[in-house]
């Protein structure tokens, strides 16, 4: 249980669309008034619920924390369904209910070469991770994506660390991404570096497979459907490494994760 989590109402400072696909904006940076949190970690998330959900949309939506400073909290989201559609309709001055910071964030070792692997929206937690890292020269990133690069808040990262950007538009691009991921994970695990990954399930499964086979020190941030975000509904569970076909063992992604070491889970 996160000791400092709170439920509070925050004011929307602005909501900024990023990029567009077929003339439509589906990626948004949501800037909120600063919550009264004593501390937070990159990789943690919030449950966010605007009044417009009413009774029709019961669950708040889990959004990864992009970054926070002494003035505001930034979340970044993609419109994928009815909940995020309504989030995208928020306007300046409205308030939203926010529970957080929730879950366990990414591990950080200041002096260790650290490889960040982001697929699409998986870039979100690394914005704050890179910004707050005391020795950013130890960090580098591979970013794989399909929608245009303008959909993602990548500029602040490129100012601080080297980022290999690989866009997947035709089937051959995927092979290139997989090759690059394999090579880089191999390099970092050979020097006992730290490897952190976040992205969609197929991307994470790839990282998991490479990481396990190379014995890498790797953490992955999982994304699952959540109702509560506080460990009660048991909906967001993921299988632990101790699971067997006869006796499945699940843990909550929201409270035991969302960031796990790869030897804790099976993907």
């Amino acid at each position: 249980m996160p000791p400092h989590a709170s439920y509070t109402h925050l004011t929307v400072l602005d909501i900024v669309p990023f990029g567009s696909i077929a003339g439509k904006n589906t990626f948004f940076a949501l800037r909120l008034s600063r919550p009264d949190w004593p501390e937070w970690q990159p990789g943690q998330f919030v449950m966010i619920r605007p009044d417009s959900f009413g009774l029709e949309i019961p669950w708040p939506r889990p959004l990864g924390i992009c970054d926070m400073n002494d003035r505001y909290l930034i979340c970044f989201f993609q419109v994928l369904g009815r909940g995020t559609e309504r989030l995208a309709q928020l306007s300046r001055g409205e308030t939203v209910a926010v529970t957080g910071p929730l879950g366990k964030g990414f591990h950080s070792e200041v002096d260790t070469p650290t490889l960040l692997l982001a697929g699409g929206m998986g870039i979100v937690p690394f914005i704050g991770y890179v910004r707050s890292h005391p020795q950013p020269w130890n960090l580098s990133m591979v970013f794989g994506h399909r929608p245009p690069l303008s959909c993602y808040p990548i500029e602040s990262l490129r100012e601080r660390i080297p980022v290999d950007i690989l866009r997947e538009t035709i089937p051959g691009d995927l092979d290139n991404l997989l090759f690059t991921l394999h090579e880089r994970i191999h390099d970092y695990s050979a020097q006992n570096g730290l490897i952190l990954g976040c992205g969609p399930k197929p991307f994470l499964r790839t990282l998991y497979g490479y990481g396990k086979s190379m014995g890498a020190r790797m953490q992955l941030s999982l994304e699952n459907t959540m109702a509560c975000g506080v460990g009660a509904c048991l909906g967001c569970v993921t299988k632990t490494a101790k699971t067997t076909p006869e006796t499945p063992e699940y843990v909550q992604t929201c409270t035991k994760g969302p960031v796990f070491w790869i030897d804790q889970i099976v993907l």
């Binding site: 459907t225 909906g235 699971t243």
Partner: peptide, 8 residues
């Protein structure tokens, strides 16, 4: 252990 996912 409970049921397989998705559960909710």
């Amino acid at each position: 252990g409970g049921n397989p996912t998705p559960r909710i």
